[in-house]
């Protein structure tokens, strides 16, 4: 791996702290019948980084996500997740729900999957199922109304309140999640995933459908998650302004294969990426180049 030039000064500090991979994807292959959606893909997401997985439509990004989060069983390959205390989980061997429960990988969905009929607060409490279940003595003790459960529930509500405050939804805590505006639903889904106390947070197009102001708020939220919660983030994103501004590390996929891997600056200068991403149409090239903030003259540099 080449030496990285950090995208912001904070990254430099954290590089000194630890360079361990939180997630190593090793020779991942996923086939559906005759279709190979992901082909021999290997990359690493380092602890404390925001890693972006980008690529044109149909490159296999969401399939990679579904493999990592246990919704698909990969045809071949290994998905190795390391906790800070050194324990290692092989995600491809865990049942779907255990990827979150034991390996502590949380995710959001491209088409938002909240519990629309439950309140915002309830959504955040469902995410704290594991500690609450334990506190309720797997329901038995809780049924008897013991104090231990009550204090655990208060603590869970406090955690939820903290997140509500952070995402600016405190005054909507008792509204059904389905009634929130789109941008708020996106933020709530991220907060809900964070309530499971993950080591790795996987976000599937978190900025899709957001306006520029919401997009900026999202960037701030993701930085907060990385810096204050020390949770590593892996995200799929089409919005290049998000990818280039906040990610520490970018992996580019095309047709299920990795074509580039490096810092945002390295990746956007990579001719393979430009070719894969921008195709041949000049108009499109210019538009995206403008988006990523490079003028035409520097493109080849």
């Amino acid at each position: 791996m080449t030496v990285l030039t950090p995208a912001n000064p904070k990254t430099a500090e954290r590089i000194a702290v630890g360079r361990d991979a939180v997630l190593s994807v090793v020779h991942l292959t996923m086939r559906f019948g005759g279709l190979t959606a992901v082909n021999d893909l290997s990359f690493e997401a380092r602890a404390g980084d925001i890693t972006a997985l980008i690529g044109p439509n149909g490159a296999g990004k969401t399939t990679v996500f579904n493999c990592i989060t246990g919704f698909y069983k990969p045809t071949e390959g290994m998905l190795r997740l390391a906790h800070a205390d050194g324990t290692v989980h092989l995600l491809e061997r865990l049942p779907n729900f255990a990827v979150n429960r034991t390996a502590r990988v949380a995710r959001t969905f491209q088409n938002i999957r909240l519990f629309p009929g439950m309140t915002v607060l309830e959504n955040l409490l469902v995410a704290q199922h594991k500690p609450l279940m334990r506190a309720s003595g797997f329901t038995v003790l809780g049924l008897l109304g013991l104090a231990g459960y009550r204090s655990a529930e208060t603590a869970a509500i406090d955690t939820a309140k903290g997140w509500l405050d952070r995402i600016g939804l405190m005054d909507r805590a008792d509204d059904p999640a389905g009634a929130l505006p789109y941008g708020a639903q996106r933020r709530l889904e991220i907060a809900r995933a964070m309530c499971t106390d993950p080591v790795l947070l996987c976000l599937d197009e978190p900025a899709a459908g957001l306006n520029p102001r919401e997009s900026a708020e999202l960037n701030a939220l993701l930085r907060y998650i990385r810096d204050a919660h020390h949770t590593s983030v892996l995200l799929i994103e089409h919005d290049m302004s998000v990818v280039m501004q906040i990610s520490d590390h970018v992996v580019v996929l095309d047709y299920g294969c990795k074509i580039a891997d490096g810092t945002p600056d390295q990746v956007r200068a990579d001719p393979k990426v430009v070719a894969a991403y921008l195709g041949v149409e000049d108009e499109e090239v210019e538009r995206v180049e403008a988006e990523v903030g490079i003028s035409h003259g520097e493109a080849g540099a």
Partner: peptide, 14 residues
């Protein structure tokens, strides 16, 4: 009842 897939992503053994 609301969303089984979301439940699994939150570590609930459905």
């Amino acid at each position: 009842r609301e969303d089984e897939i979301a439940c699994r992503s939150l570590g609930i053994d459905t």
